[in-house]
Amino acid sequence: MSQPFLYALVGVGLFVLGLYALIIHAHLLRKILAINVMGSGVFLMLVALAGRHPDAPPDPVPHAMVITGIVVAVSATALALILMLKVYAVTGQTALDDEKPN
């Protein structure tokens, strides 16, 4: 058990928490929040694995990937939020209807 491994486990926990919330919640804004939490969990796992050797300096490649990922995540969130507002404007609901797939 090392310090990066602890954070990797926290990342696993965040991923699972986010996935659970993504499945359970119907409100689209909550689904977007859940996806963001899942993403944070994945980033945490990546960076924790990058620093798995306590003596060597951390691996910069996962760090760069995570920085790219954070910016992509925020742009995807913005697009998802606009889509949610559009769904709301058209249907008047903040959740997708399971019953009528059309």
Partner: peptide, 10 residues
């Protein structure tokens, strides 16, 4: 957490 993991860029 990123600072603790030695990732100041992130």
């Amino acid at each position: 957490a990123w600072v603790r993991l030695n990732a100041p860029d992130v």
